[in-house]
Design a protein around this nucleic acid. Structure first.
Lengths: 156, 156
DNA sequence: GTAGTTGCAAATTTTTTGCACCATC
DNA sequence: GATGGTGCAAAAAATTTGCAACTAC
């Protein structure tokens, strides 16, 4: 969740990006982006997002949500991510955190935490040096047990 | 690709793991595992794997391949991985490389390279210390441009 | 003979596409 | 009046499930 002032700032940033690509921020796209901003960090699937957007924009079609997500992914406004369940989820790329974030997937409770610190600077440098691979982005998920579930386990 | 002696060694290791779980290494499962061993590092989808396995075992059904992969994933013999295309792929977890490997996905040619060196030991330690998250496994993919494609680009 | 396994077809779920219509500059 | 965008329904992919038949201890 981010506050409303920041949300509308992000929204106009995104509008600008769309315009630069010759695309429009239609009411449907606006509603979709606003929902993504509001439910930031929820890692919604297209269906889940559709259900949420429909609350604000009841006439929107599922296909539009898919098409919007495709556009946003192309403009690198959202990232496609998928965890172990085979479902594609969408993750807003917020400007503040320097573009990168990592995920902590708890195998007990299933929740996904985000880390907004970039832990891979050294590793990326090594990959570039040792493998000649020019890194543009990354996806990093740790699977394990979150602090809460560990605490619960210790109580038992 | 790994050599044949190693392949049959891995195969009997996997058979043992199945037996310990009260499951059988049927001809269909054997053919599936052998194909995975043979095409190691190909990151096949279920459909692709099915097509390959069918060459050795023409009567096998697609559902069996899906069910076999589910079993193998549960026993942690394979990992489910997915890159940006929304398709679930399967990756054999070989014993030799200490269980971990990372991926380099080239955004120009689309190929996936593997890194068999564990680059995350320090990072995992930090995650455990700073976030209280007990790491059991990870998924790491770098997106960027591979050495070959970079070389080609420089020639132009 | 019991427990695990299979192939097939049908069902489900996820995602994409075709198309006629709408909005806007 | 082009161009981009939309909703709807149909289609296509990807995956799962039900079930009767099979296999091996």
């Amino acid at each position: 969740m981010i506050d409303l002032a920041l949300q509308s700032e992000e929204l106009s940033r995104i509008e600008k990006q769309l315009h630069q690509a010759g695309l429009k921020l239609t009411p449907q796209r606006r509603a979709t982006v606003k929902t993504l901003l509001r439910l930031h960090e929820s890692h919604l699937s297209a269906e889940e997002l559709f259900a949420k957007v429909k609350e604000a924009e009841p006439d929107i079609g599922l296909a539009t949500v898919y098409r919007t997500l495709e556009v946003l992914a192309e403009l690198r406004i959202v990232n496609r991510v998928s965890f172990e369940d085979g479902i594609t989820r969408y993750d807003l790329r917020t400007e503040d955190s320097g573009h990168f974030h990592h995920h902590l997937l708890c195998q007990v409770c299933g929740r996904v935490e985000e880390i907004h610190e970039d832990l891979l600077l050294d590793v990326e440098q090594k990959v570039e040096q040792d493998y000649g691979f020019k890194v543009a982005d990354h996806r990093l998920t740790f699977l394990g047990i979150c602090a809460k579930c560990r605490a619960k386990q210790h109580l038992q």
